[in-house]
C-alpha cells in the first residue's frame, strides 16, 4: 500500500486521471473528503506547498508537486519523474520599459519564492533585499515597494495587465512525481512499479 499526497486543484485531478488510465477504475474524492482509500493506494489531498513536507516526513510515500515548490523548499526527497504537466516559468518581472541592471549596489525584489530569488542573485554576486509577499506580487513595483518581482509566469497575461514584463527567466518548472527516501528503499518494488506505469502514460501522451 502506498500513500500518495496530491495538491488540491488541477494537479490532483490530472494525476487521478493518470491513475484511472493505468488501472481502469474511477479515482474520485467524495465531496470535501481529504482522504481517498483504494485497495492499492491511499490518496491525501493537501495544499500544494505541503506536498513535499508530507513526503519528507513519510506521511505520504509519494507525491506530485511543482519543481518550483520543490526548489523553494529544498527538502531532501527523491525526484522520480517529470510529469511534463503544469509547465510554467519562474521569472523576473519589471515595469514595462525598465531593464535589469545587476550593477546597482542593491536591488529590492518582491517575491513569494524567497529561496529561489536569494539563490539566483547570490550566484550573480548581487546584493538584494528580498521582500516576502504572499500574493498580488505584481503590485510591488507599481507602487515602489520593490524594483522588480520574482514570480511564476504561465502565459504572462497577469504581468502584462499590470504593466509589467518578463526581463529574465530563472527556471522552467513542471510537476514532478516525488518519493520519500526511506519509502523508496523499503518499498522500492511498489514505488518503481507506479513510476513505470506513470512514465508509460506520459510517454504515450507525448507520442500522440
Amino acid at each position: 500500500m502506498l500513500t500518495v499526497a496530491l495538491p488540491k486543484g488541477r494537479i490532483a485531478k490530472e494525476t487521478l486521471e493518470i491513475f484511472e488510465t493505468i488501472f481502469g477504475d474511477s479515482f474520485k474524492f467524495d465531496d470535501r473528503k481529504l482522504i481517498l482509500e483504494t485497495p492499492k493506494f491511499r490518496f491525501l489531498l493537501v495544499r500544494n506547498q505541503d506536498v513535499a513536507t508530507y513526503v519528507y516526513h513519510q506521511a505520504a510515500d509519494i507525491g506530485v508537486v511543482g519543481l518550483d515548490t520543490l526548489e523553494e523548499q529544498g527538502l531532501d526527497v527523491v525526484r522520480l519523474l517529470d510529469l511534463r504537466r503544469g509547465i510554467c516559468k519562474v521569472a523576473i518581472g519589471m515595469k514595462k520599459g525598465e531593464k535589469l541592471d545587476l550593477t546597482k549596489p542593491e536591488l529590492k525584489v518582491a517575491s513569494k519564492m524567497v529561496n529561489i530569488t536569494k539563490r539566483y542573485f547570490e550566484e550573480r554576486a548581487v546584493s538584494v533585499e528580498i521582500i516576502k509577499l504572499y500574493g498580488s506580487i505584481e503590485l510591488a513595483p507599481l507602487i515602489g515597494l520593490a524594483d522588480m518581482i520574482v514570480d511564476i509566469v504561465e502565459t504572462g497575461t497577469t504581468m502584462k495587465q499590470n504593466g509589467l514584463e518578463v526581463v529574465e527567466d530563472i527556471m522552467t518548472s513542471s510537476t514532478y512525481l516525488i518519493a520519500n527516501k526511506n519509502s523508496y528503499i523499503a518499498k522500492k518494488d511498489e514505488v518503481l512499479d507506479i513510476y513505470e506505469k506513470i512514465r508509460d502514460v506520459i510517454q504515450e501522451e507525448n507520442k500522440a
Binding site: 525526484r79 522520480l80 517529470d82 518503481l192 513510476y195
Partner: peptide
C-alpha cells in the same frame, strides 16, 4: 554526476 545519486535521479 555524484549529485544524481544523492538525489536518486532514477529517471
Amino acid at each position: 554526476e555524484i549529485d544524481d545519486f544523492r538525489h536518486i535521479n532514477i529517471d
